[in-house]
Simulated assay, not measured.
Amino acid sequence: MKRIRLSFKGSLLTGSVLFGLIVLLGVLAPWVAPHDPLNVDLLNRLAPPSQEYPFGTDHLGRDVLSRLIYGIRTSVLIACAITVATLSVSLPIGLLIGYVRGRVDQLIMRGIDGVLAFPDIILTVAIVGILGPGFVNMTLAIIAVRWAGYVRYIRSLVQKACQEDYVRYARLSGNSHIRILRRYVLPQVLPQLVVYAVWDIGRVVLMIAGLSFLGLGVQPPKPEWGVMLHDATSYFQVAPHVMIFPGLAIMLFVLACQLLGDRFSEKEAAK
Protein backbone atom coordinates (compact mmCIF):
# COMPACT_ATOMS: atom_id res chain seq x y z
CA MET A 1 0.00 0.00 0.00
CA LYS A 2 2.84 2.36 0.84
CA ARG A 3 4.49 1.75 -2.53
CA ILE A 4 1.22 2.45 -4.32
CA ARG A 5 0.80 5.75 -2.48
CA LEU A 6 4.39 6.76 -3.23
CA SER A 7 3.89 5.91 -6.90
CA PHE A 8 0.67 7.92 -6.98
CA LYS A 9 2.31 10.97 -5.39
CA GLY A 10 5.41 10.63 -7.58
CA SER A 11 3.51 10.53 -10.88
CA LEU A 12 1.21 13.35 -9.80
CA LEU A 13 4.23 15.44 -8.82
CA THR A 14 5.95 14.65 -12.12
CA GLY A 15 2.90 15.70 -14.12
CA SER A 16 2.44 18.88 -12.08
CA VAL A 17 6.10 19.89 -12.40
CA LEU A 18 6.18 19.23 -16.15
CA PHE A 19 2.92 21.09 -16.76
CA GLY A 20 3.87 24.04 -14.56
CA LEU A 21 7.40 24.31 -15.96
CA ILE A 22 6.24 24.28 -19.59
CA VAL A 23 3.54 26.90 -18.96
CA LEU A 24 5.97 29.05 -16.97
CA LEU A 25 8.52 28.93 -19.78
CA GLY A 26 5.85 30.11 -22.20
CA VAL A 27 4.82 33.00 -19.96
CA LEU A 28 8.46 34.06 -19.44
CA ALA A 29 9.51 33.44 -23.05
CA PRO A 30 10.84 36.98 -23.75
CA TRP A 31 13.15 36.74 -20.73
CA VAL A 32 14.09 33.04 -20.98
CA ALA A 33 14.66 32.50 -24.71
CA PRO A 34 18.35 32.98 -25.56
CA HIS A 35 17.72 34.34 -29.09
CA ASP A 36 15.07 35.99 -31.22
CA PRO A 37 12.92 33.11 -32.56
CA LEU A 38 12.40 34.93 -35.89
CA ASN A 39 16.02 35.96 -36.44
CA VAL A 40 17.30 34.39 -39.69
CA ASP A 41 21.02 33.53 -39.93
CA LEU A 42 21.70 31.53 -43.10
CA LEU A 43 25.39 31.19 -42.24
CA ASN A 44 24.41 29.02 -39.25
CA ARG A 45 21.61 27.00 -40.90
CA LEU A 46 21.15 23.42 -39.62
CA ALA A 47 23.91 23.91 -37.03
CA PRO A 48 24.11 21.02 -34.52
CA PRO A 49 23.53 21.59 -30.79
CA SER A 50 26.28 23.73 -29.29
CA GLN A 51 26.94 26.02 -26.36
CA GLU A 52 25.48 29.02 -28.21
CA TYR A 53 22.57 27.03 -29.67
CA PRO A 54 21.77 24.23 -27.16
CA PHE A 55 19.16 22.66 -29.48
CA GLY A 56 20.86 23.68 -32.74
CA THR A 57 19.38 25.78 -35.53
CA ASP A 58 16.81 25.10 -38.26
CA HIS A 59 17.00 25.42 -42.05
CA LEU A 60 16.96 29.23 -41.80
CA GLY A 61 19.50 29.44 -38.99
CA ARG A 62 16.88 30.23 -36.33
CA ASP A 63 17.50 29.02 -32.79
CA VAL A 64 15.44 25.86 -32.19
CA LEU A 65 15.36 26.32 -28.40
CA SER A 66 14.02 29.86 -28.66
CA ARG A 67 11.38 28.78 -31.15
CA LEU A 68 10.34 25.93 -28.86
CA ILE A 69 9.97 28.28 -25.90
CA TYR A 70 7.97 30.84 -27.89
CA GLY A 71 6.00 27.97 -29.42
CA ILE A 72 4.58 27.24 -25.97
CA ARG A 73 2.57 30.45 -26.26
CA THR A 74 0.92 29.16 -29.41
CA SER A 75 0.70 25.42 -28.76
CA VAL A 76 -0.02 25.35 -25.02
CA LEU A 77 -1.45 28.70 -23.96
CA ILE A 78 -3.77 28.81 -26.96
CA ALA A 79 -4.83 25.21 -26.23
CA CYS A 80 -5.71 26.33 -22.69
CA ALA A 81 -7.71 29.26 -24.10
CA ILE A 82 -9.53 26.95 -26.54
CA THR A 83 -10.39 24.57 -23.70
CA VAL A 84 -11.76 27.42 -21.57
CA ALA A 85 -13.82 28.70 -24.50
CA THR A 86 -15.15 25.20 -25.18
CA LEU A 87 -16.11 24.84 -21.52
CA SER A 88 -17.88 28.20 -21.60
CA VAL A 89 -20.03 27.00 -24.50
CA SER A 90 -20.60 23.45 -23.26
CA LEU A 91 -21.22 23.97 -19.54
CA PRO A 92 -24.60 25.81 -19.76
CA ILE A 93 -25.89 23.37 -22.40
CA GLY A 94 -24.75 20.30 -20.48
CA LEU A 95 -26.24 21.57 -17.23
CA LEU A 96 -29.54 22.38 -18.91
CA ILE A 97 -30.13 19.13 -20.79
CA GLY A 98 -28.76 17.01 -17.94
CA TYR A 99 -31.12 18.59 -15.44
CA VAL A 100 -34.26 19.15 -17.52
CA ARG A 101 -34.07 16.15 -19.90
CA GLY A 102 -37.20 15.60 -22.02
CA ARG A 103 -37.52 16.47 -25.70
CA VAL A 104 -34.88 19.19 -25.64
CA ASP A 105 -32.39 16.72 -24.23
CA GLN A 106 -33.20 14.13 -26.90
CA LEU A 107 -33.02 16.66 -29.73
CA ILE A 108 -29.65 18.08 -28.68
CA MET A 109 -28.20 14.62 -28.00
CA ARG A 110 -29.11 13.44 -31.50
CA GLY A 111 -27.19 16.39 -32.93
CA ILE A 112 -24.26 15.63 -30.62
CA ASP A 113 -24.30 11.98 -31.70
CA GLY A 114 -24.03 13.16 -35.29
CA VAL A 115 -21.00 15.31 -34.50
CA LEU A 116 -19.30 12.57 -32.48
CA ALA A 117 -19.85 10.05 -35.28
CA PHE A 118 -16.88 11.58 -37.12
CA PRO A 119 -13.28 11.39 -35.84
CA ASP A 120 -12.19 14.71 -34.34
CA ILE A 121 -9.25 15.35 -36.63
CA ILE A 122 -11.17 14.53 -39.83
CA LEU A 123 -14.07 16.82 -38.95
CA THR A 124 -11.68 19.58 -37.88
CA VAL A 125 -9.69 19.31 -41.13
CA ALA A 126 -12.96 19.46 -43.10
CA ILE A 127 -14.11 22.62 -41.29
CA VAL A 128 -10.73 24.35 -41.67
CA GLY A 129 -10.67 23.31 -45.33
CA ILE A 130 -14.02 25.06 -45.84
CA LEU A 131 -13.15 28.18 -43.81
CA GLY A 132 -9.57 28.37 -45.06
CA PRO A 133 -6.23 27.84 -43.29
CA GLY A 134 -5.23 30.17 -40.49
CA PHE A 135 -5.04 30.55 -36.75
CA VAL A 136 -8.53 31.98 -36.20
CA ASN A 137 -10.27 29.42 -38.41
CA MET A 138 -8.33 26.60 -36.72
CA THR A 139 -9.45 27.84 -33.29
CA LEU A 140 -13.11 28.05 -34.35
CA ALA A 141 -12.95 24.60 -35.93
CA ILE A 142 -11.50 22.95 -32.81
CA ILE A 143 -14.15 24.54 -30.58
CA ALA A 144 -16.90 23.52 -33.02
CA VAL A 145 -15.70 19.91 -32.85
CA ARG A 146 -14.75 19.60 -29.17
CA TRP A 147 -17.92 21.11 -27.61
CA ALA A 148 -20.05 18.02 -28.32
CA GLY A 149 -17.87 15.69 -26.25
CA TYR A 150 -17.89 18.14 -23.35
CA VAL A 151 -21.70 18.47 -23.44
CA ARG A 152 -22.15 14.69 -23.36
CA TYR A 153 -19.72 14.34 -20.44
CA ILE A 154 -21.29 17.22 -18.47
CA ARG A 155 -24.76 15.81 -19.10
CA SER A 156 -23.76 12.44 -17.64
CA LEU A 157 -22.23 14.10 -14.57
CA VAL A 158 -25.34 16.23 -14.00
CA GLN A 159 -27.69 13.26 -14.32
CA LYS A 160 -25.60 11.33 -11.81
CA ALA A 161 -25.56 14.29 -9.38
CA CYS A 162 -29.33 14.74 -9.67
CA GLN A 163 -29.82 11.21 -8.32
CA GLU A 164 -28.16 12.12 -5.03
CA ASP A 165 -30.39 12.49 -1.97
CA TYR A 166 -29.31 16.05 -1.18
CA VAL A 167 -30.51 17.23 -4.61
CA ARG A 168 -33.89 15.56 -4.04
CA TYR A 169 -34.15 17.18 -0.62
CA ALA A 170 -33.30 20.54 -2.17
CA ARG A 171 -36.17 20.13 -4.61
CA LEU A 172 -38.56 19.16 -1.85
CA SER A 173 -37.45 22.21 0.15
CA GLY A 174 -38.75 24.48 -2.58
CA ASN A 175 -35.42 25.69 -4.01
CA SER A 176 -35.57 27.09 -7.53
CA HIS A 177 -34.03 25.13 -10.39
CA ILE A 178 -31.32 27.75 -10.90
CA ARG A 179 -30.42 27.67 -7.20
CA ILE A 180 -30.23 23.87 -7.22
CA LEU A 181 -27.97 23.88 -10.27
CA ARG A 182 -25.73 26.63 -8.90
CA ARG A 183 -25.49 25.51 -5.28
CA TYR A 184 -25.83 21.72 -5.35
CA VAL A 185 -25.18 20.33 -8.84
CA LEU A 186 -22.39 22.55 -10.17
CA PRO A 187 -20.03 22.06 -7.17
CA GLN A 188 -20.44 18.31 -7.61
CA VAL A 189 -19.72 18.42 -11.34
CA LEU A 190 -16.94 21.00 -11.46
CA PRO A 191 -14.00 19.01 -9.95
CA GLN A 192 -14.46 16.11 -12.38
CA LEU A 193 -14.92 18.54 -15.25
CA VAL A 194 -11.65 20.30 -14.43
CA VAL A 195 -9.86 16.93 -14.44
CA TYR A 196 -11.34 16.15 -17.84
CA ALA A 197 -10.35 19.57 -19.18
CA VAL A 198 -6.73 19.24 -17.99
CA TRP A 199 -6.48 15.85 -19.66
CA ASP A 200 -8.10 17.23 -22.83
CA ILE A 201 -5.61 20.13 -23.16
CA GLY A 202 -3.04 17.57 -24.28
CA ARG A 203 -5.36 16.39 -27.06
CA VAL A 204 -5.97 19.98 -28.17
CA VAL A 205 -2.21 20.56 -28.37
CA LEU A 206 -1.95 17.49 -30.60
CA MET A 207 -4.77 18.82 -32.80
CA ILE A 208 -3.10 22.24 -33.11
CA ALA A 209 0.23 20.63 -33.96
CA GLY A 210 -1.40 18.24 -36.45
CA LEU A 211 -3.32 20.98 -38.27
CA SER A 212 -0.23 23.21 -38.38
CA PHE A 213 1.83 20.28 -39.66
CA LEU A 214 -0.68 19.90 -42.52
CA GLY A 215 -0.48 23.63 -43.28
CA LEU A 216 -4.04 24.32 -42.09
CA GLY A 217 -3.35 25.87 -38.70
CA VAL A 218 -0.71 28.33 -37.54
CA GLN A 219 1.23 29.72 -40.49
CA PRO A 220 5.00 30.29 -40.71
CA PRO A 221 7.09 32.06 -39.55
CA LYS A 222 5.16 32.08 -36.23
CA PRO A 223 6.85 29.67 -33.79
CA GLU A 224 4.64 26.63 -33.20
CA TRP A 225 5.56 23.01 -32.56
CA GLY A 226 3.58 21.57 -35.49
CA VAL A 227 5.01 24.17 -37.87
CA MET A 228 8.50 23.29 -36.66
CA LEU A 229 7.86 19.61 -37.36
CA HIS A 230 6.57 20.45 -40.84
CA ASP A 231 9.63 22.58 -41.63
CA ALA A 232 11.95 19.82 -40.38
CA THR A 233 10.63 16.96 -42.54
CA SER A 234 12.98 17.75 -45.44
CA TYR A 235 16.05 17.93 -43.22
CA PHE A 236 15.55 15.05 -40.81
CA GLN A 237 18.29 12.86 -42.27
CA VAL A 238 20.95 15.59 -42.33
CA ALA A 239 19.89 17.43 -39.14
CA PRO A 240 17.64 15.20 -37.00
CA HIS A 241 17.68 17.67 -34.10
CA VAL A 242 15.28 20.01 -35.94
CA MET A 243 12.54 17.36 -35.66
CA ILE A 244 13.53 15.53 -32.48
CA PHE A 245 13.25 18.49 -30.10
CA PRO A 246 9.78 19.70 -31.21
CA GLY A 247 8.57 16.09 -31.07
CA LEU A 248 9.94 15.72 -27.53
CA ALA A 249 8.25 18.97 -26.48
CA ILE A 250 4.85 17.72 -27.68
CA MET A 251 5.41 14.32 -26.06
CA LEU A 252 6.41 15.80 -22.68
CA PHE A 253 3.44 18.15 -22.51
CA VAL A 254 0.93 15.47 -23.51
CA LEU A 255 2.52 13.16 -20.94
CA ALA A 256 2.14 15.84 -18.25
CA CYS A 257 -1.56 16.26 -19.09
CA GLN A 258 -2.06 12.50 -19.10
CA LEU A 259 -0.39 12.08 -15.70
CA LEU A 260 -2.43 14.90 -14.17
CA GLY A 261 -5.71 13.68 -15.65
CA ASP A 262 -5.19 10.04 -14.71
CA ARG A 263 -4.01 10.71 -11.17
CA PHE A 264 -6.71 13.25 -10.35
CA SER A 265 -9.39 10.92 -11.74
CA GLU A 266 -8.04 8.08 -9.60
CA LYS A 267 -8.11 10.40 -6.60
CA GLU A 268 -11.74 11.36 -7.29
CA ALA A 269 -12.69 7.71 -7.77
CA ALA A 270 -11.10 6.76 -4.46
CA LYS A 271 -13.21 9.26 -2.51
Rank of each mutant, 00 (worst) to 15 (best):
2 K>Y: 09
2 K>L: 10
4 I>A: 15
4 I>M: 14
16 S>A: 13
18 L>C: 06
18 L>P: 01
19 F>A: 10
20 G>R: 06
22 I>P: 06
26 G>M: 03
38 L>Q: 04
45 R>T: 12
48 P>I: 00
57 T>E: 00
63 D>S: 11
68 L>V: 08
71 G>M: 06
81 A>V: 03
90 S>D: 05
92 P>D: 10
94 G>Q: 12
98 G>M: 04
102 G>Q: 12
103 R>D: 11
104 V>S: 09
106 Q>G: 14
107 L>Y: 07
110 R>V: 11
117 A>L: 13
117 A>T: 14
123 L>T: 05
123 L>E: 03
123 L>A: 07
125 V>P: 01
126 A>V: 04
126 A>D: 02
127 I>R: 02
130 I>N: 08
137 N>G: 01
137 N>T: 06
138 M>F: 08
139 T>I: 10
149 G>D: 12
150 Y>P: 02
157 L>M: 14
166 Y>K: 09
170 A>D: 06
176 S>N: 08
178 I>S: 15
180 I>L: 10
182 R>S: 12
185 V>D: 06
188 Q>L: 14
189 V>H: 05
191 P>N: 07
194 V>N: 07
194 V>K: 06
197 A>L: 03
197 A>Q: 00
198 V>F: 09
204 V>H: 04
206 L>N: 01
208 I>N: 00
210 G>P: 10
210 G>N: 10
222 K>I: 14
222 K>W: 08
223 P>Y: 01
230 H>F: 07
233 T>F: 12
236 F>R: 08
237 Q>I: 03
239 A>P: 00
240 P>D: 11
257 C>D: 10
260 L>K: 10
262 D>T: 11
263 R>V: 11
266 E>D: 15
